[in-house]
Design a protein around this nucleic acid. Structure first.
Lengths: 252, 252
DNA sequence: AACTCTGCTTGATTTGGATCAAGCGTAATC
DNA sequence: GATTACGCTTGATCCAAATCAAGCAGAGTT
């Protein structure tokens, strides 16, 4: 126990204050001193590999997890054996927020590629939030953001057709990756066509056909998991994103 | 300003501490003294009527709203003129949580029938939460609950067919109403068939046909907005609610 | 009572995407 | 280099629910 308080060389290297994601993640809006206090409760694990679970549905809720590098999918069992992919999580994004209420995980989280993950014991985070108003505020914001994102997904699944869904998915990936300093037009998808289809409420075959169609129409080049977006504007048009008057505030 | 501190007879009558919803709503888990502090920041308005808005998309976010009596729907504009119904809100439920992050409402909230609404200025609630750990915890729980509920909706829209969706909707209404002390099997729906269909991602005609079919199959009696559930178990079966409690680890 | 409006129901037809059914390409294993 | 396996693509067929099209019933108005 006492040993954990020793700040090792490793811990300094990976500390929140040096993390390029700190402005997307929990530390956002915190002063340096508070970032260090937050840093003090975060556990960092060995790298995790494709297929490893952060947690499984049914397990007791203890910690939130943040993707540092790599990617993670969350999914829930559906009534008849199948599963529903609930989301794909990129660096800086927080996983496990839905478990706070029931104190138990309702979904599972599995890493899609070799990933580094930060673990945050929730009760310690709550204690800290009580004494750091800007951390409390940031946590409310993060929870709220998740709700807003879910509402967008409801709209997508309730009102959009297959083409609009895939376009919206690609635009979302593009936006999120570029926020993390990666290319908005050239990226690798870590999830399978099957997982994309599941997430978007479409059959694998439909997803595959749409990738082909988008390529035929000159919107993108696709080679397996490698996507190059050639016409971002048209893709946004298909996704139903109004570009005239693009009123700031497009977070996510 | 000074006048607002005078506790009027009216305020005492409708105070949180006397509210039958307090165990479903924000005061849950708070000691009496803290309930009174919470009560001190809540504004109560004149009754609102069918069609009135609590807020509209685009407006600055200032307050959360809680339904005290009646019901409210939230909805967002979809790309082509239409709208997506995001939720129906019953007494004790909190509205506006998705706006915290952007500091601006992305959706609109409209009352479906004559309703009483409590308004909670968010910045004051945040201040209070900083000094009352159990209130902070309850707010995290409420935000988390909303996320969990949205995940259920994603599963519904992504994986369930029309019949399963309507059954799940009716079961949800039944459960929520009975929690509020009303009948689980005999209730009035305050929303139109059109709104139900919109919410569930179905055409009005499909909703109407399903009500007829459920009635023909002896699952319920329907007369306009009045629903009597005759066979709750079968309805749960259709909705895909496993009653045998057998959720092993569906990995993948 | 007749008229209108709006929300709901019912029937006929269409269709987007699911499902079924092969094949194909790449990567891992032998 | 052959073999297997899995993920992806492509084509053919099918079906659940959307759309189109009336008609109907209750609530409010004249």
């Amino acid at each position: 126990m006492a040993q954990r308080k020793v700040i090792s060389f490793e811990n300094i290297r990976v500390a929140c204050r040096n993390c390029t994601l700190s402005q997307l993640c929990l530390p956002m809006g915190l002063v340096a001193e508070d970032v260090d206090r937050l840093d003090g409760i975060i556990k960092r694990s060995r790298p995790m590999h494709r297929g490893d679970h952060l947690f499984r549905g049914g397990e007791r809720f203890r910690s939130l997890f943040v993707v540092k590098t790599g990617s993670v999918k969350t999914y829930a069992p559906s009534s008849e054996g199948g599963e529903q992919v609930l989301g794909f999580h990129l660096p800086g994004e927080i996983i496990g927020l839905d478990a706070i209420e029931k104190d138990c995980h309702a979904c599972s989280a599995k890493v899609l590629e070799t990933s580094a993950i930060c673990e945050i014991p929730f009760h310690r985070l709550e204690e800290l939030a009580s004494s750091i108003p800007s951390l409390q505020h940031q946590m409310f914001r993060l929870l709220s953001k998740e709700i807003g994102h879910d509402a967008e997904m409801l709209l997508l699944l309730g009102k959009k057709n297959a083409e609009e869904r895939l376009a919206a998915f690609l635009i979302s990936m593009s936006k999120r990756l570029s926020k993390r300093g990666l290319s908005a037009t050239d990226f690798y998808l870590s999830m399978s066509r099957h997982e994309i289809g599941n997430y978007l409420g479409l059959a694998v075959e439909t997803v595959s056909r749409l990738f082909t169609r988008f390529q035929d129409e000159g919107l993108l080049n696709v080679d397996r998991k490698h996507v190059q977006v050639l016409d971002l504007r048209s893709l946004e048009g298909i996704a139903g994103i109004v570009q005239a008057e693009d009123h700031q505030q497009h977070s996510n």
